[in-house]
Design a binder for these strands. Structure first.
Lengths: 189, 189
DNA sequence: TGATTTACTTCAAATTTTGAAGTAAAATTC
DNA sequence: GAATTTTACTTCAAAATTTGAAGTAAATCA
């Protein structure tokens, strides 16, 4: 996410020794409880959920900073997420709703901003005129590319092999859990 | 998260076959790109970040539903997260800020609501009168307990062994990544 | 054909988040 | 030991986001 390589090869080992933003006090998220010594750490879905939120906030902060650096000031991290959710292909609003688990009116709101900022194009589908087909404009594509570049650079400078494996691990595990939660929303709850 | 066991032993295998909330269309989040066949799937931090958001939203929905069932209508999932972040011990506002990576005024706002709803107690610390000491009231403790019970029940009914392992895996991996991101915010960016 | 459903959008209200003060108590500096 | 700075918050108002209840227009169904 950064282009200024102040600490080109800092890995997590160092990260663990560092202080949080602003040096107010050190980063000390609770550790998951261990029920008995020797057990695998007990993680509740709440522990995980709070970590999800915290990580999201953290990441949004990074994106916001990168947007500032790129001189983009008409959209924020939330809109960027939608942009990235669209990807290279043409999608319908409904697809986006599912992809991000958004609410309809919410996506509409974001799409309006993205249209106003000329990041996306909307064309009504010919075969179903209720449905809007959405894709990135050149500007949108460029922004995504810039962000991806920054991310690549960031990964190379701040992440080790292990971190990248963690990324994939977290993704897979979380993806499975999300399905369980989606389910619970559908039934159960 | 649920107490109605409509589908007592539904595992992820089944989940994969199910439709999303409202049956509008099926759950089809993009898969991470594979650069080459046979490669481990390439996951970018954006892919992960969007998954984090989506999962959070999904989970918030579950908590909201559970709150409704419990007859709690003066606070929402966001406040619950703060409540859970407090835990069994007495904490300062600053500690909470770090735990959830919140902004100061934001936590203040939540704490006010939680105080109004009698979920927490705030006492000014004697040794540092600027600092507020915060802990759960009986009501707060009870709510947390109820939620944890619901989660336990939910886990038992909806999650298999693999899911629980995933929970732990995701937590650990994400925890590491969060540190990298925290770092980037501190330096780099 | 008329009724219903789907795929969205709009709008207004409620909620949440941010940022720029402000306050009061430590801790530092002079 | 008085003045300054820093810390640990709170408050307030503005901005951003989210929700929910319409509304519209096109498809589909009966």
């Amino acid at each position: 996410m950064t282009q200024e390589l102040l600490y080109p090869s800092m890995g997590l080992e160092d990260a663990l020794l560092l202080r949080s933003v602003g040096d107010r006090r050190h980063v000390a998220p609770e550790q998951p409880r261990r029920d008995q010594v020797g057990d695998a750490p007990q993680v509740s879905c709440f522990d995980l959920a709070r970590l999800l939120e915290r990580s999201s906030r953290r990441f949004s902060g990074l994106v916001a900073a990168e947007l500032t650096r790129l001189g983009v000031d008409d959209i924020g991290p939330a809109q960027v997420m939608v942009l990235l959710a669209i990807g290279d292909t043409e999608v319908s609003v409904g697809e986006l709703l599912d992809r991000g688990n958004y609410v309809g009116s919410n996506i509409s709101y974001y799409l309006k901003q993205l249209t106003d900022g000329d990041y996306i194009d909307r064309v009504t589908s010919q075969r179903d005129k209720r449905s809007a087909r959405i894709r990135l404009t050149e500007r949108g594509r460029q922004l995504c590319a810039d962000l991806r570049d920054a991310a690549k650079l960031f990964e190379r400078s701040f992440c080790g092999e292990q971190d990248l494996r963690d990324l994939a691990t977290a993704f897979q595990a979380l993806h499975r859990l999300e399905l369980v939660w989606a389910n619970a929303a559908r039934y159960g709850v």
